[in-house]
Structure formats: C-alpha cells, structure tokens
Design a protein around this nucleic acid. Structure first.
Lengths: 202, 202
DNA sequence: CCACCGCTACCGAGCGACCGGTAGTGCCTG
DNA sequence: CAGGCACTACCGGTCGCTCGGTAGCGGTGG
C-alpha cells in the first residue's frame, strides 16, 4: 500500500499552494460583489484564468472554497493581534484595526455580505460566525479588563460592554458601506470609546 | 370616458389587496430562510397556494415583490412611532422597539439578511438601506437632542452619538440571531444607554 | 332575463440562461 | 513515466420570466 492515506482532497505542490491563495482572493472579490449564493464558480475561475472545472481541481466544492475564505480571515485576525504572545489586544490596537478596515472596503464588504447571508437557514458560514462571535466577545472582554479591571468607569463590567464594542464595529461597517462619505468609521469608533471612558484618549 | 387608461400595472380589488399582503408576508418568511437571492418565486407562491405564474400576476417581477416587502417595513416603522404627531421618539420608546424586536426573530432575520445582501453590487435594496440609514440617523439625533440638548453627558453631540445607537441596534441583532441564548439584546441596549448617561434609567 | 363584455385571477407549457458538479482526456513537467 | 494540472463535454436541475389561454364575476343593454 504505497498510497494509503491521503484521506481527502488532492495533494498540491508549492505552485499549487500559490494558486490556491490566488483563487481565495478572487473568491473574496466575487463574494463582495455578489454574495456567496450569487458568486458562481465560473466567475471566480475567470478571475484567475481558469475554467470552472479547473477551479474545482483545487477546491472540490463551492463550500470548500468558502471555508478557505473564512480560514484565511482567521489567519488575518491572528495577524492583527500583532503583539501576539498570547496577551489580549490593547484598546488602542482595536482603534488601529478599525482604521485599517476603513482602507479595505472590499474585504469588509465580503465579510459583511457573508455575515448577512449567514443568518439564513443552514448557511454554511453560520457555525463560523457563531463561533467567531463567541471568541471575539471573550477576547474583547479580556482587552477591556486589562485596561480597566472588573469595572469600567461607567460601572459596567467588561462582559457587559464587550458585545457592545463588537456590535459597534459591525454596525458601523454597514452604515459606512452604504455611505462612505457620510460615515467616518474610525471617528465614530473613537467617539464610542469616549462613551466608555471620557478621560481616555485611546 | 368611464375607464381612463390606468397607466401602469394591474388594478386589484379589495380581495386582491388582501392577497397581496398575504404574499408579502410569505415573501418575508422565505427571505428570512434563504435571503433575497436564494428566495425563489415558486417557494413564495407555494406558501400562499399559488403557482409562480399566479404570483407574477400580483407582482410583475421579483424585484417588485422585494420593493413591496421594504415598503411594508416602512409602514411598520411609522407604526412604531406610536406617539406619531410628528414629535421625535423618546429614548424610552427606542428601548421598547428593541424589546419588541426580541420577540420578532423572523422579521429581524428577514431584514438582517437583506441588509447583508444589500452591500453587494447593484443590489435592488441598496437605495432603500442607504436612504433608511440617512433618515434613521437624523431621527435618532432628534430624539437624543430632545432628551439631552446639544451636548450629551459625555460631551458628545447628538450627531456624533446617533450613528452609534443605530450601529448598536444592527450589530446586536446579528449577535443575537447567531446566539439567542447568549445575547440579551434589550439588556445590552440598556447597558449602552447607561454608557450615554449613567444617571438615566431610560 | 339573459347574452354579451371587460376585467380580475390564475395556470400549463416552455424558453434561455445559469448553476454546481462529474467523467474522461491529454499536456507538460519533474 | 507518473502525476499534477487543466481542459472539453456534458448532466440534471433551478432560476426568472413570457406566452397564451381559461375560468368566474359584475355590470349593461336589448
């Protein structure tokens, strides 16, 4: 048995890995334009100079491609926590993330579209967002606790405020995508931080 | 000339109007389950005991049906401002809206799914949400000004805080739809109001 | 009274486009 | 020459929408 395992999928070489990343980036663009349901494999394939069937050589199904997109975002999330080393982000770093997002409308559009779709029945991205929210709320609570302890200046606990920070980020993104001129996402986020702590300049 | 032309569309009698409302409600359900793109006219038609062609008798295109759904929401919005008489809502009334929403998950799901889809290119609901945000931010600023004047306790202006209130409402809905047990939408919203004014119980 | 008319309501059949996915084949390179 | 890679060809299915038609109902005039 020279070729036993290879349990699932096709083995890809180094060149294949580069191709896969190229495909995932193209998929994010198409999803930003038409959502996941509206995104056709053919449209993604065309962006990287393949036929739809050639694309299926790298990702055996459309859902596999979606999972690769979500996985890539997880890796970026880890990259955003630059300080890494296990410590929670600082509040100042969250401002940096919002500012960076304001220059990446395509990516924000991709994940806002996916977030919206994911509330529909049996959507393949639903488990991802459910778990992601759970994790992000926990991380945000840790960030708040590192900055202010068990009680924020308002008297609220980190666990009470964490969902609000997450909600503000998501909610501002939708308003900003619909009216980039009329909504200043980083400024609004900083205003929100002033609600949390009028003293902090963050 | 007893029967002048009736410029566009089909005229419907009282019975037809009731049928149309029935269809719009069914459409909202299907959109909640599968989004607008994923919602097929046949699925909506089946819910009201029609064929797809029979449905098209009432709404000549899928987009016309979507517009009817959005229009119905506008009418509800007007109904939520019970006090009507032109005055802005009170902050206490906004809490009531959030509490009511926590018992209408189907409708929240419908419009969260549509909001997500609407950020994609040339989506037929994009103008609706763009305009809605503009209007809701304005109304919310008026509500805040009526309660606190030109400066809120934090020193922020109503125009700075209004987008945050809207963002909190939208953002909490997504978290709540993904984890109804783990997210208490009305409680979180009240916590946010305490950030705005620690004294107010609202 | 009833034949006729116009209108609303609805359906069967089908069109053209597009969808995700399968099967089989061959090139090209390590 | 083996295998990663990409193709052609094709399948079954779904989509929104059109076309053409048929009921039934309410009014109207001979």
């Amino acid at each position: 048995m020279p070729n036993p395992p290879r349990p699932h999928g096709v083995r890809h070489g180094a060149r294949g890995q580069a191709r896969r990343e190229e495909i995932v980036r193209a998929a994010m663009e198409v999803i930003a334009e038409r959502g996941y349901r509206g995104a056709s494999l053919a449209a993604v394939a065309e962006k990287v100079g393949l036929t739809q069937q050639g694309l299926l050589h790298y990702f055996p199904s459309k859902e596999d491609l979606l999972i690769a997109v979500l996985t890539m975002r997880d890796e970026w999330d880890r990259g955003d926590r630059v300080s890494s080393d296990g410590n929670p982000m600082t509040v100042a770093q969250t401002v940096g993330v919002v500012e960076a997002n304001a220059h990446r409308s395509a990516i924000i559009r991709t994940f806002s579209a996916l977030l919206g779709e994911s509330v529909t029945e049996d959507h393949p991205a639903e488990p991802y967002f459910r778990e992601r929210y759970r994790r992000v709320r926990g991380e945000m609570a840790a960030t708040l606790r590192a900055q202010w302890g068990d009680r924020l200046p308002s008297g609220l606990t980190p666990e009470e405020v964490a969902p609000l920070v997450v909600a503000i980020m998501d909610g501002l993104q939708f308003q900003w995508l619909h009216d980039p001129e009329g909504v200043d996402m980083p400024a609004s986020f900083r205003a929100f931080l002033r609600l949390i702590d009028p003293e902090a300049l963050a």
